[in-house]
Every structure is written in structure tokens, then in C-alpha cells.
Amino acid sequence: MTGNQQNNGPKHKRDLTRRKVVVAGAGAAVAVGAGAALASGAFADETTDSASASASSTSSSAETCYKLTSETTEGPYYIDADKIRRDITEDKEGIPLVLNLKVIDAETCKPIANAAVDIWHCDALGVYSGYESLSTGGGGTAPTDAPSGTPSGTPTGEPPSGAPSGGTGGGGHEEPTDDERYLRGTWKTDKQGRVAFKTIFPGWYRGRTVHIHTKVHVDGKWTDTGYEGGHTCHTGQFFFSEEAVLASAEVEPYSTSTTERTTLTEDTIYDQSGTTGGLLKLKYDKKNIAKGVVGSITMGVEPDSTNDGTSL
């Protein structure tokens, strides 16, 4: 699960790189705000939520089961997971988000159990933990209307780095500049290939649409100290509908951002392919998104391939 893995192509296992992570202590803070109850309840009943999301997409499962989920760039702000936890919120403010994920073998459609799934994303104002001095937050005077339109000026924060397939570059990995690790975490999939995380709805920064990064690691071993060995079979990103992002922009602290936003259709990473490209299925109160959001998606991966996102 290290960022310097080389892509050896489909159906080719690389030599295992040993890695160890420290299990995070108990007591991670729950998402704060008036809407925490909705997301908290969904997280507590994660199996039901995941099953419900899966059932709701049954009509399309036959045709999507055999589609590989799009591989994307790792980006410059990946940190080999050192927090084994499902609640990654810490003390960050924002709209509560429960992320229900399912990992399946894209060829056999069978769930992949005991995989290590990483997620990481910026906070409500576009700042990444571990890279606060490199990230450019968007705090300031609230804009007169919801952020939209074409970004201008030199992109800051995590730079765009080409299309998800056939693109060039990856932004280059940056070494962490601080010890913060909020909005980052790793957890294992259950027997049904499911895993759920509690976090907050991400914000945005110039040059990228709202997104969450993910990696799926397989063939490793879970120990008392964390996860060891294995290889990265999938590196991707999750995306949010424009409707949900515009609704979030009306809620503090998102509403205080002065940063221009790249829309979903303008993004250089999202391939416009819907679920296959990482577009989340979202559930929330359309009249009050601040209550919380539940996002769900099934990832079809090739467990025998190595896709670490550094060579796209």
C-alpha cells in the first residue's frame, strides 16, 4: 500500500511490499452540527444502508457488474494509511456524510472480503490534512451566490492532472508538511465486500470538482497492528452531483468560501461515465442538506491487477 508501487498491468501480481500501520485509538469525534443525527444513524446501520443502496440499483447491476470502475490519478496528497478507523471526521466542521462502499471482482461479480479501503479528502474549505501549508483554503467573505462557472487564474491546491484514462502525469507525490491526519482513514471490507466511513461532505478548491480519493488494497494480512503487505488493485475518486454541491454551498462553513469552483462537467479527472466513473448515489433531504448525506457506490475492481494511480 505504498505510493511508489509500479503498475505491472492487468492480471499480473507484483512482489508484496510490506507495510505496517498503527491502529487509531478509540474516541474519534463524531461529526458535529445539527445534521449529525441523520448520518450517525445511517452509519450505525451501515449494512442496511448498503443493502438498500445495492437493492435500489438491482435493475442496472447486471450491466454494471462487469464494468471496471475507472482508475484515476493518486494525486499529490496521498499518505500511506496510518489511521485504521471508520470515523475520519475528527473535529472538522461540515455536513455529515456517511459513505457506504462495496467492493466486487469486476469479472466474477463476487464481493471481495477483507480488502483494505483507504479514503481521503479535503475539508469544507479545500484544505488537506498533512498538507495544510500546500493547500489553499477558501475561507473568507461569503460569496453573493453559489460558486459556479469556469475557474480562472493559476490553479492551487491539488492540481488537475489529466483525464482518468490516457491522461498524463499525476501531479507528483508531495511529502507531508504536518502531522494532521483528519479526513483520512482505512477500514476493511466485510464478507459482503462492504465498508462504511463517517466523514463530512468535502469542499472544493480551484482546479478540481468536489471529490473523495480512494484506494483498494488486497492480498495483505490484517494483524493486531493494522494491515501488512498486499498490493493496490484500484485507485479512484468519488464524485458528487452538481445539485448536491450547490445545496452544500448554502451551508456554513462552505458558504464562506470565496474560491471559484470547477463543475462536474469541467473536471479533468471525472470521465463523465456516471457510476463507473465514481459518481455517488446520494440520499439527503432536498430541503435541508445540512441534516446529512448518505453516499453509496459499488466498485468493480480487478484484484489481480496493480493500479496505484501513479502512472496515469
Score class of each variant (00 low, 15 high):
L99K: 13
I104A: 03
G27L: 04
T259N: 13
D80C: 10
F238E: 09
H231L: 03
I200D: 06
P303F: 10
K283C: 06
Q192H: 13
V218F: 08
T156Q: 06
L246I: 12
A31F: 03
W120Q: 08
A42C: 04
P160V: 03
F238A: 06
A124P: 00
P202E: 04
T214M: 10
E228I: 06
S273G: 01
G277A: 11
Y66D: 09
D179Q: 08
G274P: 01
G172M: 06
T73D: 13
R194E: 13
F239M: 06
D105P: 07
G203W: 02
Y78M: 13
L183A: 06
T235N: 14
S305T: 11
G137M: 10
K20P: 00
D91C: 00
A34E: 07
E242P: 04
V294K: 09
N8I: 10
Y182C: 02
A44F: 03
G277E: 11
I297P: 08
E266A: 04
Y66H: 15
R85C: 07
A244V: 13
L125T: 09
A53P: 01
A163I: 00
A62L: 09
G172K: 04
T168P: 00
A28L: 05
A116N: 07
P159S: 09
S56H: 01
V117D: 01
E228F: 12
R208M: 11
D105R: 12
I289Y: 07
I84P: 01
I88P: 05
V293Q: 03
Y131F: 15
A247M: 09
T47H: 11
D49K: 15
Y78T: 11
P155H: 13
G295C: 05
V30H: 10
T168Y: 04
T275C: 00
E266Y: 02
K221R: 04
E302N: 14
S305I: 00
G35M: 02
G94A: 09
E228Y: 08
Q237E: 15
T177V: 03
E107A: 15
A28V: 07
E266V: 01
G75D: 08
R208P: 02
R18N: 10
G94L: 05
S59A: 15
D267S: 10
F238D: 11
A29W: 02
T150K: 15
G41D: 14
E90W: 04
G138E: 10
E228N: 09
T64S: 13
P303M: 10
F238H: 11
G300K: 12
E63R: 15
E175I: 02
Y270M: 04
E158F: 04
V293K: 09
R261P: 12
I84E: 08
T259C: 05
T156P: 00
K20R: 11
L312W: 03
A53Q: 09
E302R: 05
G220A: 10
D224G: 15
G207K: 03
Y182P: 00
D179H: 03
E250C: 05
G137H: 04
T154W: 02
I95Y: 04
R14Q: 14
Y270P: 00
G292Q: 00
P160C: 02
L264Q: 07
Y270H: 03
S135F: 14
G229K: 03
V21A: 13
L312V: 07
